Amino acid sequence: MTIRLRTTEDLPACVEALAQVQAADRYPVDWPDDPDGWLTPAGLTSAWVAVEADAVLGHVGLAGDGEIVRLFVAPAARGRGLAGELLDAVRAAVQSPLKLEVSSEGTAAIAFYERSGWRRVGSSRAQWINAAGEAALMHHYVSP
Rank of each mutant, 00 (worst) to 15 (best):
D88I: 15
G79P: 07
E105I: 11
D33Q: 11
W48Y: 02
R120N: 03
I129D: 05
G106Q: 09
R70K: 13
G61F: 02
R78A: 03
Y27E: 06
A77K: 03
V102N: 04
S123K: 15
A76E: 12
P75G: 04
A77C: 02
S103M: 06
G84V: 11
A93P: 03
L18W: 00
T2W: 09
L44E: 02
I68G: 05
S46A: 15
Y27K: 03
V15Q: 05
G79S: 12
V121T: 09
A76C: 13
E105D: 13
R80V: 13
L71Y: 02
A76V: 14
T107L: 06
D10N: 09
D65S: 05
R125A: 15
A17L: 00
L86K: 13
A63S: 08
H140G: 06
R119Q: 09
G58T: 06
I129G: 06
V142D: 01
V49T: 02
W38I: 13
E101C: 14
H140P: 06
Q22M: 10
P35Y: 01
L71R: 06
T8C: 13
P144H: 08
S143G: 06
F112D: 06
R80D: 10
S46Q: 15
H139V: 14
R6C: 15
P41W: 05
E16S: 07
S124F: 13
P32K: 03
E101I: 14
L100Y: 04
T45R: 11
G106A: 13
P144D: 11
A74M: 00
T8L: 13
S96G: 14
I3F: 00
S116K: 07
E85R: 13
S143W: 06
V90Q: 14
V15L: 04
V51F: 07
F72W: 01
I129H: 03
R91H: 09
A55L: 14
L57K: 07
Y113A: 10
A63N: 10
S46T: 15
I129F: 10
D65F: 03
R6I: 15
E16L: 10
P35C: 03
G61I: 03
H140Q: 10
L82V: 02
T7P: 09
D10F: 11
L44K: 01
R26W: 12
Q127N: 15
H140A: 07
G43V: 06
A111I: 05
D25L: 00
V94K: 14
I129S: 04
A55T: 13
T107Y: 02
L82I: 05
G133M: 07
L98K: 11
H140Y: 11
G58M: 05
S116W: 08
A126F: 01
G117Y: 08
E9K: 06
V142P: 01
V69I: 15
V142S: 00
L5Q: 14
A50Q: 08
E114G: 05
D34K: 00
V94M: 14
Q22D: 12
M138Q: 14
A89N: 07
V142W: 01
V121K: 04
G122D: 05
A19R: 04
R115E: 10
P28I: 05
W31Y: 03
W38M: 11
P28M: 04
M138V: 15
A76G: 12
D88P: 10
V102R: 01
A83S: 12
A63E: 09
R120T: 07
G61V: 05
L98D: 10
R70D: 09
E101Q: 14
D33G: 09
I3M: 00
A13K: 02
